[in-house]
Design a protein around this nucleic acid. Structure first.
Lengths: 191, 191
DNA sequence: ACCTGAACACCGTTCAAGT
DNA sequence: ACCTGAACACCGTTCAAGT
């Protein structure tokens, strides 16, 4: 009756770390606590992530920040706007679910993580008729807005919780309004 | 000939900390190193910042993230667009100069720091003829874009440095292009 | 009031040793 | 190959003591 322990894998380590960050915050993610959660000594982690905590944090960013847009179907005229609206909403939701890693996404850390995401967005715009340069710039504008606005939202939600609820902000509505501003602006750059 | 030491003040502590972050990165800002730079024992800092490192980081955010827009003069029709363009450029410049604190701006930390900035932006839009709700949302959209895009820029610059310089990004141009997209989008929400 | 020195609990990481 | 135990250098912070 030896209680077979789940084997330690890179993925399981990163998922457990994400669970700690979501539940207790980034500041409480330590190698020792992560080891406890995995029922292993902290030092065992280094066998799967040789670069240690650095590699762990890179893994968290990759896990959260990579969400490519669907570039496959129906790239008709009005389609791209609705497609980007849907994608942006999904991306915001993911960032809010893992708000603890937002500071990591913003750091110099793991700069390649967002490339797949940005590239797919650029492709959506290219298929919609944007010129190469405008598509690349547009993808950057959109993803910049989503990340920046969501960061404001996370901070704003924390603040208003202690204020009087009279001047509460409807963040869903505000995000959508800003998103529509960006999309409307993008439309004006279409030849 | 007792060498009179500059007295320790809250401001001098925070400015010295900012200097360390700019020069060596956020990870190397420790209370002990900060004490060394101030030519004082680390524990002396607690006398001026009772909440310790938490308060120090809050101070850094306040120092960097607060940059109100000029709401004073000439709020004629086309004026607000140029005013916001100038302000956004200045804000981006400041964030780039202190890129090390960007992760702190994005964290839950010191959520009040951006309020003065956001409020002044909203006022600029209100004076330009935006309704209250649209002005508040527009301010959020703009500041979200600036923060998010600048965060992408910091990460992107680090990445491309090791890549072939053929596909280098003109970040100045890209920022301005995205900014114009946002401003064009804002214009469409004007009654 | 302002700063120091010693101490405490906790980090990330290395490395030799176990299986 | 995979994990452990002890050790090292370094944190943030408290607290009694100095001036």
């Amino acid at each position: 009756m030896s209680q077979q322990r789940e084997p330690l894998t890179r993925d399981r380590i990163i998922e457990t770390a994400l669970h700690i960050v979501d539940g207790q915050g980034l500041g409480r993610l330590t190698m020792r606590r992560l080891g406890d959660a995995l029922e292993v000594e902290a030092m065992a982690i280094y066998h799967h992530l040789p670069r240690g905590k650095e590699e762990l944090l890179d893994g968290l960013v990759a896990h959260v920040a990579v969400l490519p847009a669907d570039t496959s179907a129906s790239h008709d005229a009005g389609g791209w706007r609705e497609r980007l609206r849907t994608w942006a909403g999904a991306y915001r939701t993911r960032l809010l679910e893992h708000a603890g890693v937002l500071p990591l996404v913003v750091t110099r850390r793991n700069p390649t993580a967002l490339i797949a995401t940005t590239d797919s967005l650029r492709e959506v715009l290219r298929l919609a008729g944007f010129l190469n340069g405008a598509a690349a710039a547009g993808a950057h504008t959109l993803i910049g807005y989503v990340i920046g606005h969501t960061a404001l939202e996370v901070r704003g939600r924390e603040l208003r919780r202690t204020a009087d609820p009279g001047d509460a902000v409807d963040w869903d509505h505000r995000f959508t309004a800003g998103l529509d501003v960006v999309l409307a602006g993008l439309l004006t750059t279409l030849a």
